[in-house]
Structures are given as C-alpha cells and as structure tokens.
Design a protein around this nucleic acid. Structure first.
Length: 782
DNA sequence: CCAGTACTTAGGTTG
DNA sequence: TAAGTACTGG
C-alpha cells in the first residue's frame, strides 16, 4: 500500500522521520490521526517489531479509533502486539506485572473518583473536621494535584509553601488527610487514578532493573495530545524514552484546554529544551473547515501571547462568514438556534447529526433542549452518567472487587449491609475503629470476628461470619469458573438481584435490566465466539479493566441522526458541518473564574478556538442580554471574544422573528414580540408570595407544650400498635395506610427494632420498622 | 426502615 | 431555578 502518496509534504516528512526526538505540531483538522497511524505502519514496514512500539493517548475513544485504523492498515494480529492505549490503561497493566516491587498485591483494586471521595469523606469525619470546609471534592483535587506533580504526602507536609497556602485557606489539615488517605489506600490494596501514574514513577525511580526493562522494550514511543500531559506523565515518558530517544509527541498548544486538571502546556512549549536535536514538523494545512472559519480562528488565537508559531491555512472554499446573533434572553437564544437549525435543515436538506450546539457550562443545555423539543428536532446530550457509574452497577462490581481483593475497604463498606443483612452502621463503626487502632484492613477484623471480641453482639457476629464465608466462597469460584458464571452466581447469592427484582417501580425495573446488561457483557467476555465454548476469561481479567472503562460513548441505535449538545470540552476532537456556539457573554464565556489571570484567560481563548474549529461549513455564535443564573435574572454583556474575531469574517445578524419585528434594534424593544415573550416567560409566573394563612396551624404553642403533645401522641400510637406488632407472623397478609395490602416475608429484630419485610401487591417489597408502620391484619391464615 | 422536607450550592472532565 | 444531600417524623 502506497500510504506515503496520500500525505502532504510535512505529513510525509513527519511519518518518515522515525528516529530521534520528533515533535509534530498539528493544527485543528490537519490530519493528525492519519499521520500517527501511518507513522506506526511505516515503522513496521521498516522492520521494527510491533512489540517494541508504545503509543499513548488520553481517552479510551482515541485509543479505540487509533487501533481500528491501524488494524485496517496492518491487520489484526500485528495490531494486537502494539502497546497502545491510554496512559492509565498501559501503566495499570505494567503495575500489575510489577506490583510486588512496590509493595502492592498483583490484584490491586483501582478506586474510581467516587471511591476516593467516599474514603476522603470518612477520613475527614474521623479527624472530626467539618466536611463543609474540607469538601471531599476539594480535598480530592488537592491530593490529585500533588500526586500529578509527584509530591508525596511526606514532601507535602515538609513543603512550607503548600502548608502556608493551606493555612491561609483555612484548611491546615489537608496534608494530614493526604497522609492518612495514602495509608488507607495502601492498606486496602487500592490505587486511585493518579496512583497509576504516581506509582509508575515510583517503580521507574526506585527499581532500575524495571526501568531498563521497559526502556529496552519501548524502543519507539508516541504520545498523542501531548499538550494535555501533566508533570507525572511527562516524567514517565521522559524516563522511558531516555535510552533510545525515539520519542514522537503530537499536539497543538492552541488546543490545550485542560490546565484546570493539571495539564501543563509548558510540556509542549518547552519540549525543545529537553531534546536539543529535536525535529519539529508543523501540520498547518486544514482539511476540515472553510477559509472563513480557519481565518477567523487564527484571528482569535492571535490574541494569546503564550504559543508556538504556526499559521494554519486551507485550500477549501471561502465559505460563509461567521454569524453573530443577539438574543434578549436565554430562552430566546434557544429559539433562535433551534429555528436556525430547522431552516438550514429544510433549505439544504442537512441531517440532524451534522449540527452541534456547544456551550461553556452544562447548565446552558436546558434552554436549548426546550427550544429543540418545541420544533420536534431530535437531539442527544453528551456527558451524562456513564453506565459504570450507576449505583446498581457499582454495587455488583463492589462484590466482584471484594471477592478478588478482600482488603478493598470501599467495596466492603458499600456492600456489607447491602442488601440489608443486619450489619448496621453501629457495628460497622466498631469494626472501623478497631481496624484503625491496629492499622489492619477491615477484612482482617471481620474474618477473625469470632476470635477477637470487639464488643459486637453474637447476632451481628454470626451475620458477619456468614458474610465472610460467602465472600470466600465467591473467591474460590473465581479460580474455577468463567467470568459470567461467577458474576451470575454473585448477583444471585448476594441477594442483590432479588432485591432489585422486588422493586417494581420504573427505576427499579431499569436497575434490574442494567444488571442483566452487565452480566450479558460478562457473557460476551467469557464465551469464545469461534467455538462457542467457554473460554478461560476470568472475572479477574474483567476487573482489571473495568475501572478504566468510562464508555458513555456507546452509541445505541436510537442515538443516530440527532443534533449533538455538549460542552466545548467534550467536543474536542469532533467535527460537525454546522456548529452553534452559544452564551458568548462576559462572565460566562470567558468564565468569571478566569478573568483575573492571563493563563486562565488564554485557556478560555483556546477553548473558544477549539469551538470554532469544530465546524466544517458554518459557525453561528450567539449571546443573550439577560440570563437566568442560579435563579436570578442577570443582565449580560457580549463576550470580549466576539470583538477579537477579525470583523471581515463576521456577519452580525439582525434577527427577525416570524412576525417581522426586528429584535436587534433597541427602539423596538419595549414593544416587541420578543419583549412580550420575555414577560410571559419570566414575569407572569405566579410567585407564590401570598402565604396560605388560612391553613391548619397544628402546634402554634410553646416548644415545651409541643414536645408534650408529641410525646403523648407517640405513647398512644405505640401502645395501640404493640399488640398488633406482637401478633404479626410470617405469611400473614396486612394492610398499610400508604402501601396497601401485602404479605409478610420475614420478621427480625426485637422490641423497638422489630422490622418486617413485606411484599406489597402494588409497590413491591419493603422493609418496615413495626414501631412506625401502622399495620392492620387482613388475613391471619398462614 | 421509608419518605417527605429543609437546606445547600451552583466550571470545564479523562481515567 | 433545580438538583442533590442531610435530617427527622412516623
């Protein structure tokens, strides 16, 4: 295959320059992925072994696309041998191999962000600190930032700058929390996402033999989206490439938009300093967009100081100018955008999925959705909750995790009493206290619960040992059965499937189906398609990868041909014929939080650059004069970014509504249709200011009296229902004032804590505390 | 234990 | 405004 003929000059040079350090500055739409894939093909053509090539990306999606394209060129077998994937997946794989060197078990758990935050939350609680001050998300970001800068907890505590920062922000204990967090993760045999990179650095720093091994293995290294690397990733790449120096980084400093999560644009700006004999190639020809779009984008980015020199250009047609549209308020902005899409569709016969609406913040999607719905335009919002983050999925996966790694404490805390098995918070708290005293894992305590008397009553003790026995039995099965068999068994034996099955609400049904879907996924994994026989794919293999799945991008059948709604961040790497960028207002885009520093402002500007360069044919920019923010109507000014576009590439549209009023002219504003609509949208809503004074005022008396009244009430109610509660038996049919009729399935606990599980005819199964549930016996026949 | 209510908070997001 | 969480009464 003559792939070199398909490339322009700089693209071909970049492909052919395989040895030594190379930097490819790839403008938007310049054929970057093509160059990367052809470069790998070229390496293989030259006789390089596919096992010696490492290719790193940031997202699963990018990795998958790359693998698909490379498979087409070089075939599946060769493609499989390449080390190709996200930073996290590649180094997780290496860490599993080398885990023992750094004191971790080979089957370590990967904590996702939710696990990490929940752990942080419990540590903050243990410290007796206020979780309003030490918000888990904030603490997590602080720890994450430290790890991505390769600052250990010890150097954090020893760093006077960091310590004084934390003191002046009123959070002096952050370093201590970092320390305990690290210890707890280690104790649980768990790494968070940042640890996958941090610990790789530890491995390469402290174990020269491991460093040499991987330096020799990865003779050729490629990194995509290099402008998004953080310090931790930068050091890994630098170390691995130190021996052969066949390092090729690809990126575009103008598209660096992830500074807020630790990406350091200096990594690409200073790449030359690390490799003085660096060869740089610039891909400046844009194949995606019209001249107007490319030129407008160039005029925007020219306002940034901190950038590498490059001039993108295109041979495409001139195209139409960028339209700038003003709306009176956010709802009208939605209507203008939706109308524009509707008209373009009709006039030019364009598909829905050729349109995208891009915004700075997720909150802006609402007005867009409403407007699209009014015109019956199908749309899809990106960035929802991914499958693997759903509660029921996380619950089942927690069972898997605990089965494979008994020390995993977040998994254990999540499921020890779900489905409820009588191991309540009090018991769990006791276990945690003892585990912390001895600094051993929770599992160490509960698996010896019968020997060590830690002040838990015999009932709970029995339940805990049942739980331990169950998990141990799962663990045995993992070694003897395929992933699907074990998964199904765990879902059943844990009682999770049954619990969901009993919930007949819409959400309950959907949760049950989600579990089925996960199990189906396991089945596909464990069946060998060619023979139809069970393969040796183990639950362990699934668990090694699942934490790194984020696939919100599994497109179903019904997701085709819809208008795309997403944040600009989410749009990076995508392209659409028609792009609407909405909310171009000061304090929104650029964001209010970025107006005080040049770095942040330049990142906002790059974000705008990314937005504009998504478009092939047309860009429409809109802003509103008034917008609801946090429940208040605020007036807005047009964004400075609009002025920064060279005026020769812009058309300012004086929008006309269907009735002919020109809302762009202020003289019409007080009488215009738009104004009336504005009034009807916001002012005519009944404000509920008039309080319903006539309604029942139950306790308009002193607090003391109120207490007495309530005490009497409780007394009467409990005496009244004690008799009923004592005579209840399993099998009886009862009536509940809210849930209707049902049958008693189990009764447990005694006296005040007596509770029953009841299968109701209409609302499914519920557990009720008999003290409160005013049950009437309907039928005593057992 | 369940469900309703009071209260809080509000950027972008991959793995 | 809206959505999510913490608290509390039955």
């Amino acid at each position: 295959m003559n792939y070199l003929a398909e490339l322009n000059d700089p693209q071909r040079q970049a492909v052919e320059c395989t040895d030594g350090p190379v930097m490819i500055i790839a403008g938007a739409g310049s054929g970057k992925t093509r160059v990367l894939t052809y470069r790998i093909a070229h390496l293989l053509n030259k006789g390089i072994d596919s096992f010696n090539i490492l290719s790193l990306t940031f997202t699963n999606k990018a990795a998958r696309e790359m693998r698909e394209r490379i498979t087409k060129i070089i075939g599946g077998t060769e493609a499989k041998n390449l080390w190709m994937g996200t930073f996290h997946s590649v180094f997780a794989k290496i860490l599993r191999i080398e885990a023992e060197k750094i004191g971790y078990p080979q089957n370590f758990t990967i904590y996702d962000t939710e696990d990490s935050k929940s752990l942080i939350k419990s540590i903050v609680k243990e410290f007796g600190l206020d979780d309003k001050v030490y918000k888990p998300g904030l603490v997590y970001n602080r720890i994450s930032g430290a790890k991505n800068s390769l600052i250990s907890w010890a150097s954090y505590l020893a760093n006077p700058d960091l310590m004084s920062e934390d003191r002046s922000s009123g959070k002096p204990k952050l370093g201590e929390i970092y320390k305990v967090y690290t210890n707890r993760c280690f104790r649980a045999g768990a790494m968070d996402f940042d640890d996958l990179l941090y610990n790789t650095n530890i491995l390469l720093r402290d174990h020269p033999e491991a460093l040499h091994k991987y330096q020799h293995k990865f003779k050729y290294i490629m990194v995509d989206e290099y402008q998004d690397t953080n310090f931790s990733q930068y050091v890994i790449v630098k170390k691995l490439a130190a021996l052969y120096q066949n390092i090729c980084v690809v990126g575009d400093d103008a598209q660096s938009i992830y500074g807020f999560r630790g990406a350091d644009i200096q990594n690409i700006l200073n790449f030359e300093k690390d490799y003085p004999d660096l060869k740089t190639f610039k891909l400046e020809q844009n194949y995606r967009s019209t001249q107007n779009i490319v030129n407008a984008a160039n005029s925007i980015i020219a306002n940034n100081r901190n950038q590498l020199k490059k001039h993108t250009w295109t041979e495409n047609e001139t195209g139409t100018r960028i339209k700038v549209v003003r709306a009176l308020n956010d709802n009208e902005e939605g209507n203008l955008v939706a109308n524009s899409i509707f008209e373009t569709k009709m006039q030019k016969q364009i598909r829905n999925d050729d349109f995208a609406i891009l915004y700075r913040t997720n909150a802006q999607s609402r007005s867009m959705e409403e407007a699209l719905r009014k015109l019956n335009i199908p749309y899809r919002i990106y960035g929802g909750l991914s499958f693997y983050k759903r509660k029921e999925i996380k619950d089942l996966i927690a069972y898997f995790a605990l089965t494979i790694n008994h020390k995993d404490e977040e998994a254990l805390k999540r499921i020890i009493n779900y489905p409820t098995r009588g191991i309540g918070n009090t018991t769990l708290d006791k276990i945690i206290v003892v585990a912390n005293e001895k600094n051993v894992s929770l599992w160490d305590i509960i698996s010896n619960i019968e020997q060590d008397n830690i002040g838990i009553n015999s009932g709970a003790t029995n339940k805990i040992s049942d739980f331990v026995t169950m998990i141990k039995s799962f663990a045995i099965m993992v070694n003897t059965h395929g992933a699907y068999d074990v998964g199904l068994h765990i879902a059943n034996a844990s009682g999770l499937l049954k619990d969901l099955y009993n919930d007949k609400s819409t959400e309950g049904v959907s949760r049950y189906e989600n579990i089925q879907e996960l199990l189906n996924g396991l089945k596909e994994l464990s069946v060998n398609f060619e023979t139809g026989e069970e393969s040796a794919k183990r639950l362990t293999d699934f668990m090694a990868e699942v934490a790194l799945y984020t696939d919100a991008d599994t497109e179903g059948e019904d997701d085709t041909n819809k208008v795309s709604l997403m944040t600009i961040h989410a749009a990076k790497g995508l392209e659409f014929k028609y792009v609407h960028i909405v909310g171009l207002e000061e304090n929104l885009f650029p964001s209010q939080l970025s107006i005080n520093s040049r770095e942040d402002m330049e990142e906002e500007r790059r974000l705008f650059y990314v937005a504009v360069t998504r478009a092939e044919q047309e860009v429409m920019i809109s802003y509103a004069l008034n917008r609801f923010k946090w429940g208040n109507l605020t007036s807005c000014e047009p964004s400075r970014f609009i002025e920064e576009i060279d005026p020769s590439f812009i058309d300012t549209i004086e929008t006309k509504k269907s009735n002919g009023f020109d809302i762009g002219k202020s003289s019409y504003q007080s009488e215009s249709f738009a104004e009336k609509e504005w009034n009807s949208n916001y002012s005519s809503k009944p404000k509920q200011q008039t309080s319903p004074t006539t309604n029942t005022v139950t306790y308009q008396s002193t607090p003391r009296l109120k207490k007495m009244v309530e005490a009497t009430k409780l007394q009467t109610s409990s005496t009244q229902y004690d008799d009923v509660s004592n005579s209840l038996q399993v099998g009886m049919r009862v009536e509940h004032e809210r849930f209707g009729n049902g049958a008693i399935i189990t009764i447990e606990g005694n006296a005040a804590n007596k509770k029953a599980t009841i299968q109701f005819d209409t609302v499914g199964s519920k557990q009720l505390l008999l003290k409160f549930a005013k049950l009437k016996i309907v039928n005593e026949t057992v």
